[in-house]
Design a protein around this nucleic acid. Structure first.
Length: 157
DNA sequence: TAGGCCATCTGGTCCT
DNA sequence: AGGACCAGATGGCCTA
């Protein structure tokens, strides 16, 4: 099943980019048509995924506000230590250890990005001239999974 | 030029 | 104690 590179139009991208779908109910269905604009939006997405699914033959076509801006930086460490009941311990670290930690962090971020690349390949997109950012990838994946779950439920009936 | 995205460094906390 | 994880800061690159 070759999904990559065909399915993302500008409307979907806008949706994914602005993140407003996060406010949508997970179970968006044709039966529970809400009058809200958000539900219309979700219907649009859902129909587009249906189109995509039927094109590819696996569905029947019918069928962080920053803490800084809130002035919360200083309260963070007190709250953390008070929550955990631990006193802050100052960790002494040599420059060699710092260097080693930096390398480990780079490796960690590298594997995180590999995972994002894998996810990008799984998420249906148009042959979009611009690759999905990490946040767009996550958001689109959420939409896609919701759509597929819905599809599965429908096919079970 | 501003804003978005990303890589990297860094220090703090969590976990083994 | 030390590695993993996390989030903030910073700087570079790219695009509208």
């Amino acid at each position: 099943m070759e999904i990559q590179g065909q399915f993302l139009d500008a409307t979907v991208m806008d949706f994914v980019t602005d993140g407003s779908f996060l406010e949508l109910p997970l179970n968006f269905s044709a039966e529970s048509k809400q009058s809200e604009a958000t539900s219309l939006h979700s219907m649009d997405i859902r129909e587009r995924f249906y189109d995509f699914a039927s094109i590819h033959g696996f569905a029947d076509a019918e069928s962080k506000v920053s803490l800084g801006s809130l002035g919360m930086e200083n309260s963070l460490d007190c709250s953390m230590s008070s929550l955990t009941g631990r006193s802050k311990r100052k960790r002494v670290i040599t420059s060699n250890q710092r260097h080693a930690a930096n390398i480990r962090e780079r490796k960690r971020m590298f594997s995180l990005n590999e995972a994002f690349d894998d996810l990008r390949k799984k998420v249906p997109t148009f042959a979009y001239e611009k690759r999905l950012s990490r946040i767009e990838t996550l958001r689109l994946a959420i939409v896609y999974i919701s759509f597929m779950s819905e599809l599965l439920k429908k096919n079970e009936k």
